[in-house]
Amino acid sequence: MMNRKGDSGDWVNFGGFFLICLVLGGGIALGIVIFFGEGYNFKQAESEILFDSVRDCFLERDFFDEAFNFSMCGIDEGVLRKDRLVLVSNLENGEEYSIGVRSYEVECDLNIEERPYCSSEEVVKGGERFLIITGSGADSRRILR
């Protein structure tokens, strides 16, 4: 005989039990986050350090040359491609060079908690004006070793 009346009692507290687990767990996790903070936000500082390195490199090298790569300036391109942005725009003719996460150009201006941070400045080189934007959305990575 299927679905006896007594059997349904086993599942009466199912939702309540799960809810209590979630509320207790969430409460403990929230308490820890509030007490210890959400981590160390390093994005603004990193975007400024990156900007200084990129500006020095830009003044020495031609970013718009096909043979150019950042290792010529002692910067690791693999790291730049992940969670960072370098964008150089020629303000005279609209030519652009970029590497990394291009969307940071827009995301840096959003008013959201987990946004990347950018640094930008106009630079004059060879009589032309360029806008350099660097950004960082990088965060530390938890690993199991």
Binding site: S53, F70, G74, R84, S140, R142, L144
Partner: peptide
């Protein structure tokens, strides 16, 4: 790594 069951990694862009 300051604990037994994990560690934290962060990358640097300086090519050194």
């Amino acid at each position: 790594k300051f604990r037994q069951n994990g560690a934290t990694a962060y990358s640097y862009f300086n090519g050194v």
